[in-house]
């Protein structure tokens, strides 16, 4: 078991390394960089003094080096102008737009980002599990058709549009502002129970919005898995031996059907994280989503790179968690790793 977990966690490091190269490549795709763009602007006005300062800054951030060297310096695997100082050393770079270290810009948004994604996964699990089992045991009833229809609608409605619709309805029907993290009067107010409640209430909408598509997919998957199992002979045997329906379902078919269900939550992670980024922009939540958007618009490359690295790492972490959970639930995985030796 521990061997499996150790090996599974160890894969993350080389994966992150490859991702860092991909991310850096993507971030460097636009022509020029933040500072050289500013230099071009200043040159148009003719401010020579400021240009000299910016040229110095370009050297300072190693922007004048070739691509591979820039990457290695950013990573911290090559001595830059200030020695080994990159991701590996815990320096995430400098945000040109905010004139601050990247870490200072994003740090306040990270807890909420993780909270939002964690809560959404929990929501997907908690909602899709009982409903999936419920509709599978009542195939072709009204409830089954209703949830199937809702599921298809949930899959087809893009989450940022759902966010818009809910904001509109919330405003028109209930006269409440759905967006933002809390009611405006609590902004800047000291932490209190009312403020916490306000934040929690404002998190409900984004969680539902981000989780809906995933929940719909999971319900469909669990329903199909359960139906496959319910048709098996051992279910008939158990029933013939007089097991009560509830005992039967919880004890046998559910245990088999739950494995692909858990594995799929891991596959859902990228979509959930994607959703949290755009929904945060629409609902104006202070997560990394809006930060990424503004960083991309301003070509604030190190800031954007860090956010991309962070969301990728978050996805990998979610997948790891689902694999760990799967190992706990499924003895074949935990013992199989040892048997294969």
């Amino acid at each position: 078991m521990w061997r499996y977990l150790a090996r599974r966690s160890a894969i993350i490091l080389p994966t992150l390394l490859v991702i860092s190269l991909l991310v850096f490549l993507i971030i460097e795709l636009p022509q020029g960089d933040y500072i050289s763009n500013q230099i071009a602007q200043l040159r148009a006005i003719g401010e020579e003094e400021a240009i000299a300062k910016l040229e110095f800054l370009r050297k300072e951030f190693a922007l004048d080096q070739p691509f591979l060297l820039r990457y290695l310096i950013w990573l911290g695997a090559w001595p830059g102008p200030s020695g080994f100082d990159g991701l590996l050393q815990g320096n995430f770079g400098w945000s040109f737009e905010y004139q601050q270290p990247v870490w200072h810009v994003v740090a306040p948004t990270l807890p909420l980002t993780m909270l939002l994604n964690g809560a959404t996964i929990l929501f997907v699990y908690l909602i899709s599990f009982p409903i999936g089992v419920f509709v599978a045991t009542r195939q072709y009833t009204l409830a089954d058709y209703l949830f199937t229809l809702l599921g298809y609608l949930g899959l087809a409605t893009p989450n940022f549009l759902l966010a818009l619709i809910l904001m509109y309805l919330g405003n028109v029907w209930f006269d409440i502002s759905v967006g933002g993290l809390m009611v405006p009067e609590y902004i800047g107010a000291p932490l209190s129970i009312e403020k916490a409640i306000s934040v929690a209430l404002h998190l409900i909408t984004p969680i539902i919005v981000i989780g809906t598509a995933g929940t719909a997919a999971m319900i469909r998957r669990l329903r199909a898995n359960m139906l496959d199992e319910l048709g098996q002979q051992y279910v008939i045997t158990a029933r013939a031996k007089g097991l009560s329906e509830r005992q039967l379902i919880w004890k046998y078919p559910l245990r088999v059907a739950i494995n692909p269900f858990i594995a799929d939550i891991g596959n859902l992670m990228p979509a959930l994280v994607s959703g949290s980024v755009i929904v945060s922009v629409v609902l104006n939540l202070p997560t990394v989503g809006p930060v990424l958007l503004s960083a991309l618009a301003a070509q604030d490359q190190f800031l954007a790179a860090f956010v991309l690295m962070f969301v990728s790492a978050l996805t990998l972490l979610g997948m790891l968690l689902s694999d760990v959970l799967l190992a706990f639930v499924d003895p074949r995985i935990r013992l199989g790793a040892e048997a294969r030796r």
Partner: peptide
């Protein structure tokens, strides 16, 4: 690796 990446942020970065 590509399957484990969140698509939308990367799409955003690429189209930027």
């Amino acid at each position: 690796i590509i399957r484990s990446l969140p698509e939308l942020p990367l799409w955003m970065a690429l189209s930027a």
